[in-house]
Design a protein around this nucleic acid. Structure first.
Lengths: 340, 340
DNA sequence: ATCAGTATTGCGAACGTTCGCCCGAACGTT
DNA sequence: AACGTTCGGGCGAACGTTCGCAATACTGAT
């Protein structure tokens, strides 16, 4: 049971072990009889190639690294899990496996794990997520010329492979939907400044208002971490504005925040939908079951991971890459939380 | 930049490459000066050991396989993600990395992926989740004597390493809580028969009723897949029972089902909590933000993954194992959905 | 009968480590 | 002055593949 090698198969079928290797890799010109004999022996002995030996010889590993970033607050990220699932799916089709790494809290340390894994030839490339402006990981990977592709953009000047969902467009269509519902005073609960994705989505909010000729009111914008509590406190603050300035609709930059907004609105005696419109962003699996069901923006996650995998595989195999950056469109999902 | 090997470091420091290996692995008796010279050269040249070569020589891979099962309905499993995160954390501390595999829909095919990966010496062991009675994967791994540890039990007669959360106890404390609230007619919405975890939880439900001297009413038990819809339909069915038999409390076997129950109860004009008690199981991150917040059972997931990793590492390193099965206690989390 | 040409298979080498054993020199001991 | 001991380090071998080229046998044509 222990370990059967090429030599064992060779001995069993009466040829040299190198010939066995060639036959098993379908790159030999041998007589049909010996070929069958070899295959039969391999089957009988349950031969499996040793990946370490193969990798050493071929100077490859067929492994992709994906570093999982976990926020300090332990909040899970259903989006990323779905993302990971689909990426793994694509990579396995291409004969690659995915190594799941963990990345610490400190940004500086991040780079070491990429450096080590690639330096040791353990992985052939990386998939990144949760990227940000001036992301040190991206800077490092570009500089070292290490194959990678990221979910999310970074600095515009940097030249690398990425796939992103157009948050600017996503937020804009939310605004347009709310305008169509007759809303004129629209609040926004968003993340702290400094987030690349956040900046794009905020731009979409501004675009939408500007297109409708509505002047931006700074008091309509509230910031906080990506928590339910932020949504609750932000909504309370917006509702405390004087009647003439108080928003009749609240856009949240994530479903997580939106659920806090829903709760706070109800606590204030308002029924989300008829009394105040509330929208989210991400379309978490649960969001359709909130009370009321949440209007939100759905991102084509499966498509993102597919394209990302494609980009990375092309780099690894030195294929020409048509377009390094791919921007996908999200889709508005209207539910009761924004219907009068 | 390409690839610097032991020989390069040896040439730079004027010793044989085997000596460099020993020094870098801290198992050499050399003079302090040469040692420092070697380290310095390794640092300057950015030497990183080639894992394939090392693995080939040492007959190890320092890799653990974890096969991710995805339900056909695409529903994500936040619990499992949290589980995976903590397991990876522990393994990385021990110098292992985790390979994330995908497992198809068909149960038979499952075994091949385990067979291949272990046979090719790509991984040294496996972590399993979502186990069931007569699980073919477990049967195979036991038979082949492949190191593994599973989240969840299987057949009692099988001897293998597992960690589980005591669902029987979990459901029982829910019953006791409801009894204390004055409920006597308690419904149960559960999975289809044939689930190991389901059977344990159902037993806890029965235990609790029996201890209180309440006869089990078959009509109180409704079954369906693990979806929100099941919860909604099940609740409606329970509420349709004649007044004398109609449950005043509905226990759900998962939070997913419970959210459907909450919605259906409200749709029937009942306020969850005062009018009808509803409980879940799992304590999803979102559950505390439902409307009303959901009473549920919290599982010590981080502890589960820690113990699981420990069990697997002990097997791999041929350490003696004190206890092959570890049963952890869950914790009741009382929220408004079950408070009058 | 000789020769080129092709079909089949063998062989040496290399990928980059780790491990056990050997060897020379320096040391102190009897 | 001869003899173990220890220290510092070198050397051969092996882990299991893949790959290019060499070698043999067999085919058909001249």
């Amino acid at each position: 049971m222990s370990k059967v090698t090429l030599k064992d198969v060779a001995a069993a079928s009466g040829v040299s072990y190198q010939t066995v290797s060639k036959v098993l890799n379908k790159q030999a010109t041998v007589s049909p009889e010996t070929e069958e004999r070899i295959w039969e022996a391999a089957r009988q002995l349950h031969y499996r190639p040793n990946v370490s030996a193969r990798n050493l010889r071929t100077q490859s590993s067929n492994l992709i690294g994906y570093a999982w970033q976990r926020a300090a607050d332990e909040s899970p990220r259903p989006i990323l899990d779905q993302f990971l699932y689909n990426a793994v799916l694509r990579f396995e089709q291409a004969g690659y496996h995915v190594l799941t790494l963990l990345t610490g809290a400190t940004e500086e340390m991040d780079v070491t794990i990429y450096r080590e894994l690639y330096g040791r030839r353990q992985v052939e490339g990386f998939i990144l997520a949760d990227t940000n402006h001036d992301d040190p990981r991206i800077a490092y990977l570009i500089e070292q010329n290490i194959p990678f592709a990221s979910f999310g953009r970074a600095n515009d000047a940097w030249d690398f492979c990425w796939v992103d969902v157009d948050g600017r467009h996503g937020m804009r269509i939310v605004v347009e939907h709310l305008l169509a519902q007759g809303h004129r005073r629209i609040g926004l609960i968003t993340w702290p400044e400094g987030s690349e994705a956040g900046a794009h989505r905020e731009a979409g909010y501004e675009d939408g208002l500007a297109a409708a000729g509505i002047a931006l009111n700074p008091q309509w914008i509230v910031r906080g971490e990506n928590t339910v509590q932020t949504g609750a406190e932000g909504t309370t603050r917006l509702l405390d504005l004087p009647a003439g300035e108080r928003p009749t609709a609240v856009m949240c930059i994530s479903d997580f925040i939106a659920i806090g907004a829903l709760n706070a609105a109800r606590a204030a005696g308002l029924q989300p939908g008829p009394d105040i419109a509330i929208t989210g962003y991400d379309d978490l699996p649960m969001s359709q079951f909130f009370h009321p069901p949440l209007t939100t923006v759905h991102q084509p996650i499966a498509e993102v991971s597919l394209q990302l995998a494609e980009l990375l595989l092309q780099q690894i195999n030195n294929k020409p890459i048509a377009k390094k950056g791919i921007l996908l469109n999200p889709r508005l999902v209207v539910r009761e939380s924004s219907m009068r």
